[in-house]
């Protein structure tokens, strides 16, 4: 029971940061989602030691472990968009896969090349 209370209190804290992030987005008319601003904010607070790791550990850990649960309603929404994948729409699956392969290959290749160069430099 104690653990549940801790998680709920920490979730309220995360919700508060999300709310602050959304407020910043609205005030500054940013295109970055409020949730991502909240993420950067929390990372800054943790790095500056203004927020202790223990204050978010259980709540954030709980949310990340059960992340799939929170987007079930969103993915179920495909029910309203199934028609898009009919006929020519089937192409979209191919486009998605091909673009994914490009992202994976190029981002990985660049990171790997730079790492190798750094490793050689330090040796």
């Amino acid at each position: 029971m104690n653990k549940a209370v801790t998680i709920i209190v920490q979730l309220i804290g995360l919700y508060f940061l999300y709310w602050v992030g959304t407020a910043i987005q609205k005030v500054l008319h940013l295109f970055i989602p409020g949730s991502v601003i909240g993420l950067v904010l929390l990372f800054a607070l943790l790095s500056l030691k203004l927020v202790s790791e223990q204050w978010v550990q259980k709540g954030a850990g709980f949310m990340i472990t059960h992340l799939p649960f929170f987007f079930i309603p969103a993915t179920v929404g495909i029910i309203s968009y199934a028609y898009i994948f009919k006929g020519k729409g089937i192409l979209l699956i191919g486009i998605g896969m091909f673009s994914t392969a490009l992202v994976m290959g190029l981002s990985g290749a660049v990171a790997q090349k730079m790492t190798r160069r750094m490793e050689r430099f330090y040796e």
Partner: peptide, 15 residues
């Protein structure tokens, strides 16, 4: 449930 997506993203700062 949708409402909790925002705080879940904020939580990614932890890892």
């Amino acid at each position: 449930i949708d409402h909790l997506l925002g705080p879940a993203v904020v939580g990614l700062a932890y890892p």
